[in-house]
Nucleic acid binder design. Structure first.
Length: 605
RNA sequence: GGAGCCGUAGUUCAGCCUGGUUAGAACGCCGGCCUGUCAAGCCGGAGGUCGCGGGUUCAAAUCCCGUCGGCUCCGCCA
């Protein structure tokens, strides 16, 4: 039954057959999408990468072909030779590109049969992601998945062309490199030739691209895989792709300009959307104080209100304690939703889930306030709250009190939750903007040291360099924190619709400054030499001023395709536990393989 | 490390709360009929480790405990 391809060669894609081909003989190859057997006439929808075309076989005209067509089942692989003809009037299908024509088959070859697929190759059926990932090759035959990957391909093509035209050089960097402290957990690879030593897969090509700048390549870019061994999310995979670039002899403006023009070009060419450049800029402080996060979704309001000063003398213990211990009281006003008590309880649960103790609230009802807390508040406090939050009938004011970072985290998350729950965002709008003026470092309570907000190679603002050196000489920790926290970074993040799609910075190119930063981050001289020695060394040999940027390609593509999960724009993604459902990776290796790389697996502990 | 939702036919789900006939439906699949459909239609049929393990019970898809897997989120992710 199955035949060889032989000398048969297709001359076009199924999806390309058009009215222009009417009267011509064509040869196509593809998968059986659907069969409609009417007894005497059989319609086979044949599908390939470019689309679907209807093949017709009539029993009384081509009995031998008909006999073959009768046996055909979905997902069989066929090649078909036949004449293109216009469909009879009234039988056109305007829903598909090839709906005005059909191929009258003169020859059909079955190139391969197929088991019944575990799920049909169509859009409407919702199949569990588990099954889709196990049979990814079938899932990828579906129109939307196919389009996702083709879109991604066009995205990459435009990007490469853009950088080419801008004079950037594409240079590959190693995947087998060394583990560095700071940042995410590394994936490590044992070395056979060096017992007990390990390579690490790069979290990003950061250091290599800086070294390329020292080497004088001036403008570098790469579409490159990065690896981070952290827990997965809808927008996080252990291996993901960045559009990475770096430039010499530039400041923030030039780097941001390149990034903006690339984004604008991608939106224009792929979506037909004209983004206004330059993109708006929001400072880190403004983003965090208004929205509770450094990647706000500004497509809806629901801004955070500062109320701390109202409760300096308050009788209400929860707020007063927060203020007295240096914390803040803030609120959001969910306007006009007449939220029910049940929904408020749900919101309280949501906040508890974030680690909040509870949720104080005031509901503004006709002529009265309903609230579990108003009885503890003075009239002037209540009046202050209502005025600050602009409260009106139907509104619900939701409070958070405590350490400033906690309050922002909770209200920021609550704000996004409400935005989604009440569908507040204007979905027709692309909100593209920069967040700038990040602090260079912040104090990490758990680790008891300063950590970089961006990464340790980010340069401080030009006027702030002296402050860092000064901070090193200050013994008093609180004073040191005050100084260090006042230092701004030459870093910038690009946010689209509340998602961080990229970030970058101007780097430190002087060894003395880099050493100061390492010191402040409590990276010992020894460790710095061992882990980053090659970079410090490179900075001694004529490192030019430089800076760059990296886009999260998967996130960008998902965002532009309107998808919630980056798994849908990755051909072979991993599950939340980091498993590849297709290959069952990670898998076991033989004792021999382990011996070769000098690894002994520890027993259960 | 933690929280929530989910797991029953090839697929999507109902049944579970309130234990008790032979575990149902739709789609798909198989067979038959049918000459213009396009999610073809009509008739008939097959198809189940109720994720896995243990417990309670005369009796477990159903109740309890554990475990595995998928998804979402917190922590984590320079």
């Amino acid at each position: 039954m199955v035949e060889n391809l032989g000398s048969f060669r297709r001359d076009r894609y199924c999806g390309e057959v058009s009215l222009e081909d009417v009267g011509r003989e064509v040869r196509v190859c593809g998968w059986v999408h659907r069969v409609r057997n009417h007894g005497g006439v059989i319609f086979i929808d044949l599908r390939d990468r470019e689309g679907v075309v209807q093949v017709v076989v009539e029993e009384r005209e081509d009995p031998e072909v008909y006999e073959k067509a009768e046996k055909v089942r979905p997902e069989w692989v066929l090649c078909v030779r036949g004449e293109v003809r216009k469909r009879p009037p009234g039988t056109e299908n305007p829903k598909i590109k090839t709906g005005y024509v059909e191929i009258k088959a003169k020859e059909i070859k079955v190139l391969n049969t197929s088991d019944t697929p575990p799920f049909p190759v169509e859009e409407e059926v919702n199949v569990s992601e588990e099954t889709r990932l196990k049979y990814r090759y079938i899932d990828l035959r579906r129109e939307s998945m196919k389009e996702n990957l083709l879109f991604r391909h066009r995205f990459c093509r435009i990007t490469r062309r853009f950088f080419e035209e801008e004079g950037f050089v594409e240079i590959e960097t190693p995947f087998l490199t060394r583990s560095t402290p700071e940042g995410a957990r590394d994936f490590i690879v044992p070395s056979r030739l060096h017992p007990g030593k390990f390579y690490a897969l790069p979290q990003s090509p950061q250091l290599f691209k800086q070294i390329l700048m020292v080497a004088g390549f001036d403008k570098y870019f790469q579409i490159v895989r990065c690896f981070r061994d952290e827990d997965l999310r809808a927008d996080r995979q252990p291996e993901f792709t960045q559009i990475d670039f770096e430039m010499s002899f530039v400041g923030e403006e030039e780097v941001m300009d390149v990034a903006e023009r690339l984004v604008a070009k991608l939106f224009k060419e792929l979506l037909g959307v004209e983004l206004q450049t330059p993109f708006e800029r929001v400072t880190y402080d403004e983003a965090v104080s208004k929205y509770g996060t450094d990647k706000p979704d500004r497509r809806f309001g629901l801004e955070i209100c500062e109320l701390t000063d109202l409760f300096k003398e308050s009788e209400f213990k929860v707020f007063r304690t927060a203020v007295d211990s240096g914390g803040v009281v803030k609120a959001v006003n969910l306007k006009g939703k007449n939220v029910s008590r049940k929904e408020i309880d749900e919101l309280t649960e949501f906040v508890r889930g974030l680690g909040g103790k509870g949720l104080a609230w005031i509901k503004v009802e006709p002529g009265k306030l309903t609230s579990p807390i108003t009885k503890f508040l003075s009239d002037s406090e209540i009046e202050g709250i209502l005025r600050r939050t602009g409260a009106e009938e139907g509104d619900l004011i939701l409070f958070s009190a405590g350490p400033v970072n906690e309050v922002h985290r909770i209200l920021g998350a609550l704000r996004n939750h409400l935005g989604e729950k009440y569908n507040l965002a204007d979905r027709s709008r692309w909100d593209v903007f920069w967040v700038v003026d990040f602090p260079l470092m912040e104090w990490d309570e758990e680790e008891g040291r300063f950590v970089s907000l961006h990464h340790p190679f980010t340069a401080p603002k030009e006027g702030d360099e002296e402050k860092l050196k000064e901070a090193l000489n200050v013994k008093d920790l609180e004073e040191r924190k005050r100084i260090v926290h006042s230092v701004r970074a030459r870093a910038y993040d690009l946010i689209i619709n509340g998602e961080e799609v990229g970030g970058g910075s101007i780097r430190i190119h002087r060894r003395d400054l880099q050493e100061v930063v390492f010191k402040l981050l409590s990276i010992s001289e020894e460790e710095a030499r061992e882990k980053f020695g090659f970079l410090l060394e490179a900075l001694r040999f004529g490192a030019p001023p430089h800076g760059g940027f990296a886009f999260g390609l998967d996130r960008m593509v998902a965002l532009m395709r309107g998808l919630d999960s980056i798994r849908d724009v990755i051909a072979f993604p991993k599950t939340q536990k980091g498993i590849c459902m297709l290959t069952s990776a990670p898998g076991e290796v033989t004792p021999e393989q382990l011996r070769e790389v000098h690894i002994k697996v520890a027993g259960e502990t």
